[in-house]
Design a binder for these strands. Structure first.
Lengths: 232, 232
DNA sequence: GTCGACATTTTAGTCGACAAATAAGTCGAC
DNA sequence: GTCGACTTATTTGTCGACTAAAATGTCGAC
């Protein structure tokens, strides 16, 4: 718990804390259910409780934290029994976004998607699990942005963020080794979007989701129980 | 700006302010682009700036407010040119939720939907526009809850809230008089969910969206320009 | 040993005040 | 009269302290 103060600039306090905590939660660095202490965070970041509080309020409103009435604040539980429902919803939105992106994408949008994919590939090659998960999210968000539909983009981004903890849990269980199969997973989708072929884009989007689902479910079937599924 | 203090109970300050402001924003009582002043709100609610700030942070994170760096906080713009994209996304999620609800709804879930519909009907009969908009939202959220899919429910609820301002704008333009046609709009959908008929549920959900879209677009075509479309 | 009342501790919520940053207003040089 | 530097004012972001409420711990009666 080193006091890592980065910028003393006005307004950077709350934002930095928010982003740091958010990252730590989504990467499972902070475990679900873990108690979060305001004053401890204040000393850790070398600031007072006010900016910490601001960050926490934001995280609570995004359901990444949960305030137990008069009992404290904890990291939101990760309910793996909700995974099937999660995948259902992700599939719905992912297909719609990919299809729409293929229909209306601009050249610039396609370019951004390819750039995101490049960063994803780099992360996989470097065996950087956290970076890969983040770049995977950014890749799909780039597709969402290419749809030019703010509402779809927001809903999709929200879902993708929710999924980061599931992915982290999965890869953690395999010793954080990234299989090379991941490298090609996005290429067909990109090609379909480039060719402005909505049907193909939707099909590959669906395949991509299903493959992820298969992996995760087979992992769930074989794994030992962890504490992550505890409700309260 | 009467100092309406309701509960001095601990913790009720921030929550009350949040809910009040949220309502005022979604009902267009606070106009898009309007400047929000922390200290003014503090005096209005008879509290200090801290709870006000907490409420504002939350509203910002929900994109209902927007902080201009070192310039103040304003009510988020309502971009009516985004309405088509909004409807696209709403239709997508609404169809999925209605279909899924028809598939998996419990008796209790159906009951809650019918109760929500009853409140909706009451509001329409009372010509209570704000109440109707809220009950319409709650009705659809009840459907989402019947799907037993937290992720779908959250995404749907978010969209429905986003839409409240569009609806408000629409009815305001017609002198806040509610047409009786609204009364029957949900009945077919309820029947389909009750009969566990996903196809029908999806079809009626779609019809419901399209009707709303038609109304709004014809209104847009005929209306005078307001300030609501201003970007910044 | 058990139960209940009381004290203690912890932590969230609130407060008033200060500091930084920007925008607006003012004055003077040219 | 116009431009630029300076001052002022407004408003945010931050701080440290106070307070209330709950959980925990302690003690004594029975």
């Amino acid at each position: 718990m080193a006091t890592d103060k980065r910028k003393n600039a006005r307004g950077f306090g709350a934002l930095t804390i928010y982003e740091t905590l958010r990252d730590e939660i989504l990467s499972l660095e902070m475990q679900p259910g873990e108690l979060v202490d305001e004053s401890r965070l204040a000393t850790r970041f070398g600031v007072s409780r006010s900016p910490v509080r601001e960050a926490l309020v934001r995280l609570v409103s995004e359901s990444l934290l949960q305030t137990l009435p008069n009992k404290g604040t904890i990291v939101a539980q990760l309910r793996i029994q909700e995974f099937p429902q999660y995948v259902d919803t992700l599939d719905l939105v992912q297909r719609a976004a990919s299809r729409l992106a293929a229909e209306v994408r601009s050249d610039r949008g396609l370019e951004l998607i390819k750039e995101a994919q490049q960063r994803f590939v780099d992360a996989v090659k470097a065996n950087d699990v956290l970076g890969m998960i983040l770049c995977n999210r950014d890749f799909h968000v780039a597709i969402a942005q290419a749809t030019n539909n703010k509402y779809l983009e927001e809903a999709y981004a929200q879902l993708l963020d929710d999924g980061r903890r599931f992915l982290r849990l999965y890869f953690k269980s395999y010793g954080d080794v990234l299989p090379v199969e991941l490298l090609g997973g996005h290429d067909n989708l990109i090609a379909a979007i480039e060719a402005r072929d909505p049907e193909r884009a939707e099909r590959y989007a669906r395949e991509h989701t299903i493959e992820m689902q298969q992996r995760f479910l087979s992992y769930l079937g074989s794994r030992q129980m962890t504490g992550y599924s505890v409700e309260y």
